[in-house]
Amino acid sequence: MSAFYALLFTVAFLVLVIGLAKKIYQYSRVPAPLKIPVTPAPLTKGGVAVRLAKEAILFAALFRSNKWTWLFGWMFHMSLFVVLTIHLRYFIKDVPEWLVLLQPIGKYAAFTMIIGLLGLLVRRMFVARVKYISSPSDYLWLLLLLVIGLTGVTMRFISHTDIISVKEFSLGILSFNWQTLPMDVPLLVHLFLVAILMILLPFSKLLHIPGLFFAPSRNQVDNPREKRHIAPWAAELEAEKNKMQPK
């Protein structure tokens, strides 16, 4: 069983990294032939960085759009970020002090994460407009994340697992020196679902993570009059046009 999990995580990690890299490569390779930032847009690259940061960190557009969705969505994402960060201790041999200090705050982030997910799920089930646009996979993602969160909380507060062994196991995967994993049900469920999530991420709507940064509507500088913007395939069409020059 431990070997299965070790293998599963090795595969999951590879799928995640390669899948995501392929997708990011694809996004970067497809040209954006025209300037289409949604205006008012920043006039400089620095401004674009600020615009994207506001979207990635504060969910600025969503805040403007719908306060409830923003509240639950932002709560979930920020909590997930904290939770992921405190999990770093399973991958770093000598845990740095800041990470130790973060642990007590971090353990409550699991609750805000679950509340956020529940809010999003309720909204998806009961707001007619959102229900209309939802596919089974949209519900399953929320359920998957909820179960991951709940099993995590279970291990932290109810049925403790041997985290020292878990750490040996995770460090073991990194160094290809597989170790035994404690055979606790919540842990096995937790880890299995995390692996599933890692494997499916590059093939799902979780591609919104890189997608956010590749949206030309948000990542372009507003300078079309000053700077000529031309895509490679558009350059081919250029040749013909360049015959037309003022006499």
């Binding site: 997708k23 557009a61 969503l62 759009s65 719908n66 969705t69 969505g73 909204r123 998806r124 707001v127 407009r129 959102v130 646009i133 939802s134 596919s135 949209d138 709507k205 591609l207 919104h208 997608g211 956010l212 590749f214 949206a215």
Partner: peptide, 10 residues
């Protein structure tokens, strides 16, 4: 790819 079906636009 990137739509998360959050419903903000609906």
């Amino acid at each position: 790819d990137s739509c998360i079906k959050c419903g903000a636009c609906t």
